[in-house]
């Protein structure tokens, strides 16, 4: 059992939980994640370790409430418990040791980009972070990222920072400055757009993939993604890959596999379920 020691709302649908997990807090590295299993009947879901404090034995999870499992997690309060937390899983981020890195975070991906910026800063790499949100209230982790370098904020409606998508800001930076590596974490369309931008410029680009996972140990193959025409298991071979070789279309498509089930799951939890059980794969 893992106690939640602190809870904070970061944006309308993003919540930060500091969870006790001593061993993981001590050894986790940038880019790694945990599998969280709230209680007996819950799903096992992967969440990136956004930060940790070995002294208090806590890891920071930053959770965007999108479906049943994430909504249940963000409904927990400090003092309550999560049944299982396994990790740290996945390969640590492939780091450069000198030069200039661009860390791009979209939505909750900003929190995922945080440990990467933190790690790069530690070894003396210059970090520029580009983060985005729909509007001001959706921007998260700006202050944390400022500790590691310059932060450029973009909002879709221009209510804060620059108006526009993160890709617009990224395009400008790449035109002006020498960038040695790009790390992009966020929704699939955003990672795909960044990879398309940097491909022509030959800037090495690392993306963090978010396929559906179960065990996180390489046992089920459910997290498989196509990278450079090879099948990789994101939980053990990733979750970070060379963005120029990832088949984003396939990833996006596979993420929709359980859409009908997810809707039903949420509706049933609210007691408003009118749907038939999805019986077969929709035509």
């Amino acid at each position: 059992m893992h106690q939640i020691l602190a809870k904070q709302s970061l944006s309308p649908n993003v919540t930060r939980l500091d969870v006790h997990a001593q061993r993981i807090a001590e050894i986790r590295q940038a880019g790694q994640f945990v599998i969280v299993h709230l209680n007996e009947n819950s799903e096992r879901i992967p969440l990136t370790i956004a930060d940790s404090n070995p002294a208090t034995g806590t890891i920071t999870l930053v959770i965007q409430a999108v479906g049943k499992s994430t909504n249940e997690l963000v409904a927990l309060n400090a003092g309550e418990f999560i049944r299982d937390v396994a990790g740290p899983l996945g390969h640590p981020t492939e780091m450069i040791t000198s030069g200039h890195a661009l860390c791009i975070g979209g939505g909750v991906g900003t929190a995922v980009a945080h440990p990467i910026a933190q790690g790069l800063n530690k070894v003396g790499v210059r970090v520029t972070s580009v983060i985005g949100g729909r509007s001001k209230e959706w921007v998260i982790f700006e202050n944390e990222l400022k500790r590691y370098g310059n932060v450029i904020v973009c909002t879709d409606d221009g209510s804060y920072g620059r108006k526009g998508f993160v890709t617009d800001a990224v395009k400008e930076i790449l035109a002006k400055e020498k960038v040695d590596i790009v790390y992009a974490v966020g929704p699939v369309p955003m990672m795909r757009a960044v990879a398309n931008l940097t491909r022509g410029l030959g800037v090495h680009t690392i993306v963090s993939l978010n396929p559906v996972m179960i065990d996180g140990t390489g046992m089920c193959g459910g997290c498989r993604v196509s990278v450079g025409n090879e099948t990789k298991f994101a939980c053990v071979d990733g979750p970070e890959f060379d963005g120029h070789t990832v088949n984003f279309d396939e990833l996006q498509d596979r993420l929709s596999t359980y859409r009908e089930f997810e809707q039903r799951s949420v509706a049933c939890a609210r007691g408003t379920c009118r749907m038939e059980m999805p019986t077969t794969t929709p035509a």
Partner: peptide, 30 residues
């Protein structure tokens, strides 16, 4: 979508009790 390894299929159903969806949260394509 619709291709499983036996490990994934059986794990969803046995370990995660997908046969009992939505009482259990993990789905499986039936």
């Amino acid at each position: 979508k619709g291709v499983y390894s036996a490990n994934e299929y059986l794990t969803r159903i046995n370990l995660m009790a997908a046969y009992d969806f939505p009482r259990s949260d993990t789905p499986v394509l039936n």
